[in-house]
Design a protein around this nucleic acid. Sequence first.
DNA 1: AGCCAACTGTGTCCTATAGATACTGTTTCC
DNA 2: GGAAACAGTATCTATAGGACACAGTTGGCT
Lengths: 237, 237
Amino acid sequence: MVTDSEVPADGTIQLLWGLRDGPTRGPKPVLSLERIAQAAVDIADAEGLAAVSMQRVAADLDFTKMSLYRYVTGKDELVAAMIDLAAGDPPVVAELPGRTWRPRIEAWVRLLGEAWDAHPWLPWVTMGDRVMGPNETGWTEASAAILAETGLSVPERMALARMLGGHVRATMSVSTAGTQPWVSRRQAALLEEHADRFPVLVTMLRDGEPDPPDNGREFGLRLILDGVERLIAERTS
Amino acid sequence: MVTDSEVPADGTIQLLWGLRDGPTRGPKPVLSLERIAQAAVDIADAEGLAAVSMQRVAADLDFTKMSLYRYVTGKDELVAAMIDLAAGDPPVVAELPGRTWRPRIEAWVRLLGEAWDAHPWLPWVTMGDRVMGPNETGWTEASAAILAETGLSVPERMALARMLGGHVRATMSVSTAGTQPWVSRRQAALLEEHADRFPVLVTMLRDGEPDPPDNGREFGLRLILDGVERLIAERTS
DNA sequence: AGCCAACTGTGTCCTATAGATACTGTTTCC
DNA sequence: GGAAACAGTATCTATAGGACACAGTTGGCT
């Protein structure tokens, strides 16, 4: 298992994109990549990513650990398969509501949010250099199609798409951001104790309203897209 | 080691905030939390997070693995100490350039970016529910102080601060975002092969200019802050 | 029809990891 | 000056991913 950033092997690509040529002879495979990945996703959804071990996945399928290695070269590949399975089918752009880019990309963000919120472990596993699978690429394609209308440059559009994906990630229900939503009980107590060092935070803590239930997803989305609109307006004038 | 989100123990708080009461009797401690954390940070900076094991950290200090457990209850605490050490001293708000919130928060983002870019492993380790140490809290305090001027509500200000931190994280030089900056060689080849399924991406790939060297950090920063300005303008009118 | 090569799934072994526990020796307070 | 409290060590355990050799199964070729 690679915890660090690492260039994925070619094998992973073949796996994700169905380029592995199936064998002709030999016993019929009883397992399948799909079943394995699904079992792993189920475990991760229910008990967290840490519960996903080769042993555990195999046990849930009533097979031995080593049998999984016939379908997957290692845990990294399993995780890659999990990711694309969890990402799910991307939305069809033509079916998105609205006729301009803004409502459509808003819908895209909300759908992506729903998909990701169902798999709180995704952020932990979608970091670093990776190769996207078909589903993930489909999501990217959808966003790119929507944003083509903005007239932004290609790098700008991709930066924006990445940004929106990152925003979804940072506003997941299971807080994945570095800081809390926005302070835990413990953190609050700690701030009170050091009120002299952090006067602004303590004041905010005392008279601030509670957090929005969406972790600021809609708020941040609005900020970004307002910024995009302003940029477009500046350029067209 | 906890790979999953987990509420940190009280002990970690005491460690980070210097609340651990030092012993009076017994031999003088030769090691120190600072030395241990620094050694771990050095390893992570040089060889990546995966190279940081108790064994390795201890070896670099010429001690046995188990001696570290006198200063740290486990690897989680070590990582927590690494984070606050790597975050470094927050900037002094009064010394930031500019007289309004915008140039100041821009400077804050750039400084945070520099601090984080020096420690590419930080994103991997600053996910999930955590308790912030003094340094990290100091960075948050600084951003909160700067954004107080905006007139946004408390949750809005904190959401914005979190967002900016997340933006820095998502635009680190070592790509930490889910998607590449924006496509790797391999991914590009794959797209070409499936040009029918991803027409928009393939077109962008063909006639797009190269990516900006900053991964779109400045671009995204501008979008967000433009959005903030528009929000403020709407409310004051 | 039969045989061999290719394959699936299993059992065993190896390495690295975090950590528990019992120890040896040192320091300081009573 | 003695005993409690501590620092660092040595040894052991559990769990992880994964290598490797094997037994049984299947299809293609002669």
